[in-house]
Design a protein around this nucleic acid. Structure first.
Lengths: 110, 110
DNA sequence: ATTCTTTATCGTAATATTGCAATATAATAA
DNA sequence: TTATTATATTGCAATATTACGATAAAGAAT
């Protein structure tokens, strides 16, 4: 069908999947890396940096924003985007928890 | 188009995106959580656990395996799937690095 | 007021994803 | 050999994603 059975999974699972999915595209990985490195974060700079057309970049930014990975604030004429550290921390902690559980396991078949 | 401009980004960016994308679906998040908790990891158990048909689960497992998030080993008649800790560690370290860089930033506009 | 600059939205084409029934494959059991 | 069990693959319908040209919207500059 192409439609995800969202209701069959927990809110947390859907929330994590949303964040992970938003990061699951090289352009969006690239945007996050750029915003991590750079000090100013004007939207136009991101467009210039990426090998994609402006509407495409705008769409990717929207998706990252929707997942809470970035946030934007109006800066006069332009818009300033930057990473929402909290969301990255949430994801980081989630993975740390998984790694922790794995290390405490007695058996490991594979 | 619907086709990602993979060649326009670095290998690392594409590799990270592949891992993140494979985790970007609640069913696959659910599989990873299940494999983290459980001690044995027979494919059939995963199918029983998930609210999806066997072919659908098989497809999700294939995607996780392709991204290196899980690995499978033949266990007689059945197949034993479990998490590839290294891949999770790679992702974990990647995020740690981003968080580190963010914390060392002087300015933060948003 | 008009133009310029910056970003978002719309419309659309190409491709990818999700999900499942049907079927194939492969190993074990009878 | 013939079932049985466990998993993968195929084929297909429904929906989602990716990308971009055209255009809209909104503030800044002239």
């Amino acid at each position: 069908m192409g439609v995800t059975k969202t209701d069959q999974f927990t809110k947390k699972q859907n929330a994590m999947a949303l964040i992970l999915k938003s990061l699951g595209h090289p352009a969006r990985v690239s945007i996050v890396e750029y915003l991590t490195k750079v000090d100013s974060c004007i939207c136009g700079d991101i467009v210039d940096e990426l090998p994609l057309a402006q509407p495409t970049v705008s769409q990717h930014l929207k998706e990252l924003k929707n997942a809470g990975v970035i946030k934007g604030s109006i800066e006069g004429n332009a818009i300033c985007y930057c990473i929402d550290e909290q969301t990255i921390e949430t994801l980081h902690a989630y993975l740390a928890n998984i790694l922790n559980q794995l290390k405490n396991k007695t058996t490991n078949c594979c």
